[in-house]
């Protein structure tokens, strides 16, 4: 495998005005080539230099090259300027793959009719973009957020005798209450949900809710809402000896009993499999929203000990979860 800069090959530097500007924009363009003259080509648009984008990119590339060794992957890392990023299109490759919201938005703005696979976005972003440009027959998206039934299923496994589940929602996550209620009912939970505004006293609002519950389920909202509520939810959960089910590794590390989430490697792997299917035409292209095929469970034994909950080790937890996924209503 060789790693080549393709700026001269594509005339990219000329288009955007020289190497200095190229560097200043933070645009880094590489080719991962396997040397085949008839290689399938993929344009990978990465939203930025953040670690989670890089990890997704690495897992996507390694999985795709394992599945389709003749693939050439051209990687473009977007800069900060939307106007200048827009100059990067169009892309000559067979398939466009995006990682992260900015790259996905750029791909939506520059619809080429080519097959496009969007990775590492949320279903919320997907719905917004689909609403703006509907009927994208050649666009598939693997979203980060877990379906509500998967979160409730983890709650059911870790709190098998629980009857009452509670959650608090913010301006974004309140839209998911109906789906969560349905999932809760399917798993014999009664769900109580309260929507908080920025003016609400979080402890006063959550305290009676958590006190009368068996498990607290945290739903992702805006980062600032998550941060503002997590601390109090975790404190109150400890106080009432109620387990908190989170949605990220950070939530579990902060004090939740366990979380289910899609890691960068989960998304990268799923995205690579979709891309390989599209390149090799082994399966019909499946447009639309895809919840992550793979998931990560992360548990906190210290919390389990503090709550006096018997927590299986993570491999046993995976097995229990997989079995439950198969058997779920």
């Amino acid at each position: 495998m060789e790693l080549l800069a393709i700026k001269s090959r594509e005339g990219l530097v000329k288009r955007i005005g020289g190497c200095h500007r190229y560097l200043r924009w933070g645009l880094i363009v590489f080719i991962l080539s396997c040397g085949s003259a008839q290689a399938n080509t993929v344009r990978l648009l990465v939203s930025g230099e953040q670690n989670y984008y890089r990890e997704t990119q690495q897992h996507f590339s390694s999985t795709l090259l394992a599945l389709s060794p003749d693939t050439r992957i051209a990687v473009t890392v977007l800069g900060d300027s939307a106007e200048q990023n827009a100059l990067l299109a169009p892309w000559p490759e067979d398939i466009i793959v995006t990682i992260g919201t900015p790259a996905t938005e750029l791909a939506y703005q520059n619809r080429s009719g080519k097959k496009t696979i969007n990775l590492f976005i949320t279903s919320d972003v997907w719905q917004r973009l689909e609403g703006e440009t509907p009927d994208q027959k050649n666009v598939a998206s693997v979203v980060l957020d877990q379906a509500p039934d998967r979160i409730m299923l983890l709650a059911r496994i870790l709190a098998p005798n629980a009857r009452k589940a509670v959650t608090v929602t913010g301006p974004i996550s309140s839209a998911n209450i109906a789906a969560l209620e349905q999932s809760a009912a399917n798993l014999n939970f009664t769900l109580a949900a309260k929507t908080l505004s920025e003016h609400d006293n979080p402890v006063a609002a959550m305290s009676p809710l958590i006190k009368n519950s068996d498990v607290f389920v945290a739903l992702p909202d805006s980062a600032v809402f998550n941060r503002a509520t997590a601390k109090w939810a975790l404190y109150l959960g400890f106080r009432s000896k109620i387990p908190v089910i989170g949605f990220s590794k950070a939530y579990t590390d902060a004090g939740a009993l366990a979380s289910i989430y899609a890691s960068p490697s989960d998304i990268g792997r799923h995205g690579a499999e979709l891309t390989a299917d599209a390149l090799l035409e082994t399966k019909a292209f499946s447009a639309g929203l895809h919840h992550p095929r793979y998931y990560t469970l992360h548990s906190n034994p210290s919390v389990a000990k503090a709550l006096n909950i018997s927590l299986p080790n993570e491999s046993a937890l995976y097995k229990m979860y997989e079995d439950a996924l198969v058997k779920r209503p």
Partner: peptide
């Protein structure tokens, strides 16, 4: 809308952690 940055944001560490 909710973005990946919201999902992956830091949660301040408390208590048993």
């Amino acid at each position: 809308s909710l973005t990946e940055a919201d999902l992956l944001s830091d949660i301040p560490v408390i208590s048993v952690a």
